[in-house]
Simulated scan of single mutants.
Amino acid sequence: MPEFPDNLPEKWKNKGYNVCRLGIDCYGISNLKILNISDRGIFSLKIKKEGDHFQLQATNENSLLELNAKSIFLCDPNAYTKDNK
């Protein structure tokens, strides 16, 4: 996430964290499309309800991930400190 949240959980307060991340679990996947996915970079994420499934699209200038899923869950949020040297 390019911006650190303003409203922090108690366990994250006053720790000096400057980076957070979360996972996305997708179940019942169909119509999967992956182009040039790297392990670094900032993605724009869109999740939209379409009838009986969700459409997920993650993009940046070089990469694309698209899929349909029966269910999508945000999971495992955590925060840490990253040195910006």
Rank of each mutant, 00 (worst) to 15 (best):
P77I: 00
I37Q: 13
Q57W: 04
D6I: 08
L32Q: 10
I72Q: 02
F4D: 06
L67G: 15
K13N: 07
A79Y: 02
I47M: 10
D76H: 07
I72T: 03
F43P: 04
I24P: 04
I72F: 00
N60D: 15
Q57F: 06
L65F: 14
K70M: 11
S38V: 05
G16D: 08
E66G: 03
I47S: 06
E3K: 12
P2F: 04
L35Q: 12
S71V: 05
N18I: 03
A79M: 03
D76E: 12
N7D: 13
L67S: 14
L67F: 09
N7W: 01
H53G: 14
I42H: 07
F73K: 12
C20F: 10
H53V: 12
S30Q: 09
L67Q: 10
N60H: 02
P2S: 11
D52R: 11
D76W: 02
L8V: 04
L45F: 06
I47C: 10
K13F: 04
Q57K: 15
D25S: 07
I72H: 01
K15C: 10
L64V: 06
A69K: 01
D25I: 03
N7E: 08
K48D: 15
L67N: 12
Y27A: 04
Q55V: 14
D25R: 01
C20R: 02
S71D: 14
L56G: 12
F4V: 03
S38D: 12
T81E: 13
K46T: 14
F54H: 14
K46G: 12
L56D: 09
M1T: 09
A58S: 08
D52E: 15
N18G: 09
F73T: 09
L74A: 12
K70E: 15
F73C: 10
W12F: 11
K15G: 07
I24G: 03
D76L: 04
K15N: 11
I72W: 00
H53Y: 12
P2I: 07
D25M: 02
E66S: 10
I29F: 08
N78E: 11
S63Y: 01
M1N: 13
N7K: 06
C20L: 02
L65Q: 10
Y27R: 05
Y80K: 10
P9T: 01
G16K: 05
G41C: 03
P5K: 01
Y80P: 03
I34P: 06
N31T: 08
G23T: 02
N14A: 14
A79R: 02
I72K: 00
K11M: 11
A79D: 08
N78Q: 11
